[in-house]
Structures are given as C-alpha cells and as structure tokens.
C-alpha cells in the first residue's frame, strides 16, 4: 500500500519501520532534513524535504493524491487536524489518521471520522489496524 506520512517525529521513527516491514511503500515529509536523513538510515522509506510549509504543493510532491493512506504526525495538534481533514475531504484518501496529544481534541475529533493516534503505547497497533481494514 502506498502511504504518506507528514511529520518526522518520534512516533514516525517508531511507526515507519514497522510499516515498511509489513511491506508498505512509505514516504515521509518534514521540514527537518536531518531527521529525515536519520530515518532513512533506519528504514527503507522515501523522504520529501519540505523547505517551507507551503502545504498543498508539497503534499503533491509526496504524491498525496495517489496515496492509499495518510498519517499526519507533526508535533502540532492543530496542524495535524488541518492536514488530515484536507487529505480526507479534498483528496478523498480512504484511510487517514492524525496524532493529537490534547485529550480534549482527541474526544472532539474522534467522532468526526478522523482516526486519532494518542501517541501512547497502543498507537502503533491502532495504525496497523487501520491499514488492515
């Protein structure tokens, strides 16, 4: 499955290698080129360096439209909400998940049809479950 991940955080470091191991084709986007380089050493992923968060253009470069799943895993809850809703409502990506650290935002967005990863220990299995659906 072709998967696009926006944001190279600790959660990405943990999740991306597992997804690659499961046989998925993973692309990771982030403004921090050093983090991307580190991740590339750990796992066989393609990376897109976001020089400036001019979001839509870069999402195209990561081939969002052709992706079957999208994860928004930046450290910023609001950014994740914007990106994941864009992926699901504008690009019609069937499987979308975002990382939210604020419990209030988790409660609010879960019923709106966006997969929420809370960053806790069960995040990785939740992400894999989504891809198996």
């Amino acid at each position: 499955m072709q998967i696009l991940i926006y944001g190279c955080t600790r959660l990405t470091d943990a999740l991306a290698p597992i997804l690659v191991q499961d046989g998925h084709q993973v692309t990771v986007m982030d403004p921090d080129s050093d983090r991307l380089a580190l991740l590339r050493k750990q796992a066989d992923v393609s990376t897109v360096w976001v020089a400036e968060p001019l979001m839509l253009d870069y999402l195209m470069q990561g081939d969002l439209a052709g992706s079957e799943a999208f994860f928004s895993l930046t450290g910023d809850d609001h950014e994740n909400i914007l990106l994941s809703q864009m992926a699901s409502h504008i690009f019609n990506i069937p499987r979308v998940m975002c990382h939210l650290s604020d419990p209030q935002l988790q409660d609010f967005y879960q019923p709106l049809g966006i997969g929420v990863l809370n960053g806790g220990p069960d995040s990785l299995s939740a992400a894999r479950d989504l891809l198996e659906e």
Binding site: D76, D77, H78, I81
Partner: peptide
C-alpha cells in the same frame, strides 16, 4: 495560525452550535 483558526471554528460550530463562524487565513490555498 490558519490551523488554529480552523479548530476554533469547528468547535464553535459543532460543540456550541454557533450560527456564524468567521476565520482569517494567511495561506490562500486553505
């Protein structure tokens, strides 16, 4: 921040049924 303005409007609309929500955005693509 555009993203924050979106969250504010969505909460106002869905949690509080505010009739009219207005947001400022910086990035025209949003």
């Amino acid at each position: 921040r555009d993203a924050t303005n979106l969250v504010i409007c969505q909460m106002a609309k869905l949690s509080f049924s505010v009739q009219r929500t207005v947001a400022i955005i910086r990035d025209p693509r949003n």
